[in-house]
Design a protein around this nucleic acid. Structure first.
Lengths: 227, 227
DNA sequence: CGGCAAATTGAGGAATGTCAAACTGTGTGG
DNA sequence: CCACACAGTTTGACATTCCTCAATTTGCCG
């Protein structure tokens, strides 16, 4: 099993957006998803919205020709599965064994019955929109090193308060996932990790474990104040 | 004055997302915004959420070093100004004279009083999230010509049923706006327009007016099935 | 008609992508 | 327990797309 990530409030560069825990009323029993299993797929009718309790989910979208975009990573505290026209618009699978709390989406139809849930979801959706706006800037206007540095910093914030010490980041996703999240290729991710390593900014302890040696330098890189 | 764009239901490549008209209760009087004037700025406390009635708004975000990302264009039927932590996270100004209908955001706090408004906003937010997911794919994984073609097609859908005939698109935004929306430069936009023109796919009748000569070819280009 | 901002065009360069090869680590079966 | 196999990662050489900078051109408004 993987580390358990903290369920903290969060507002930053979109790896999904965390929100204060949704009110428990109308939630189903916690559901466990094996690593690699799908929670839902694009086009599925939306029956539930899910709060991630533990583990990490991956939301992806595909183009007909196979190009892929990772839309977000769902960390504990995130809400995933927002419907649009009653359907899911991404695939969602688990990068690690994960636990989610389902909220029946039909409860939304009759908002009068469930103002608290509705309010919480609205807040979650707003957070998500804000996080996605950050990600736009990232995808559209940042260089490879800025993207990777920003991404690592965001992971630090989200995952940093778990079992890991503050500057040791566990990456539950592959290089390809990072690439598809940042709009780059795996080769570029790999080379950019190499640059950060050579600059003494981080150490790749293990493929899935990165230690941030110079957090300030990483922040500088993320802003593009250097090179 | 500019053309009036239709207020139609819509779900596509994010230029903002249209939603069925929000219930009129708790809405303020329609407000008119001069071309170029700001509706709100990043960091402002959110007092209202707005439904675009007429005209076109521009939502932008800036990086400290001046890099800009156009987050969305707000067309009639779109809801703009979703709060996150009670604040606006983009600037919003008008590309044309515009009319908006404000909805008091405090009405959201006491959801019990206004389930219909809350429900409508939730739906709008979901639409927005879906549209933004499309835009992710666009920013992260599409080439310049695919981006521009997709963008024009989306405008067609949104603006095509207004005063203009179906394949004549009025662009209320500058080349720089398009570039900042698509994550490109004005030069690339210009050159890409040139390519589409040379390919006989469209005619640039006027800087702000484009006629689509071969819609199918444009769709093909948008998907990247060519070249 | 002149002036200015926006758009276009051109030449050259930088960043990232592509393709191929080598490497690493992990799990499996002998 | 070791060797092998495989998937994922890294590295290298090269290609391509898009960007940058500069020069023109266009369109708009006084």
């Amino acid at each position: 099993m993987y580390v358990t990530f903290s369920t903290e409030y969060h507002r930053f560069n979109s790896i999904g957006s965390a929100v204060p825990a949704v009110v428990p009323s109308k939630s189903g029993p916690v559901r466990t998803i094996r690593s690699g299993a799908y929670l839902y797929r694009e086009g599925d009718e939306v029956m539930h919205v899910y709060e991630v309790i533990e583990g990490v989910l991956r939301l992806t979208r595909l183009l007909e020709d196979g190009r892929r975009q990772v839309i977000a990573f769902g960390y504990p505290g995130d809400i995933v599965g927002f419907p649009s026209n009653g359907r899911h618009h991404t695939d969602c699978d688990a990068l690690t064994e994960a636990k989610v709390r389902p909220y029946c989406s039909s409860a939304l139809e009759d908002g009068t019955n469930n103002p608290h849930l509705q309010r919480a979801l609205l807040e979650a959706a707003f957070q998500e929109i804000s996080a996605m706006q950050d990600h736009f800037m990232m995808l559209g206007r940042k260089s490879a090193s800025e993207k990777l540095a920003s991404f690592l910093l965001t992971l630090c914030e989200r995952a940093g308060n778990g079992l890991d010490c503050d500057d040791r980041i566990t990456l539950p996703m592959s290089r390809a996932d990072i690439a598809d999240f940042l709009g780059l290729t795996t080769e570029t991710i790999s080379r950019t990790f190499g640059q950060l390593r050579k600059a003494g900014i981080l150490r790749v302890e293990h493929i899935y474990t990165v230690v941030i040696l110079r957090p300030d330098a990483l922040r500088t890189t993320a802003r593009g104040d250097d090179a």
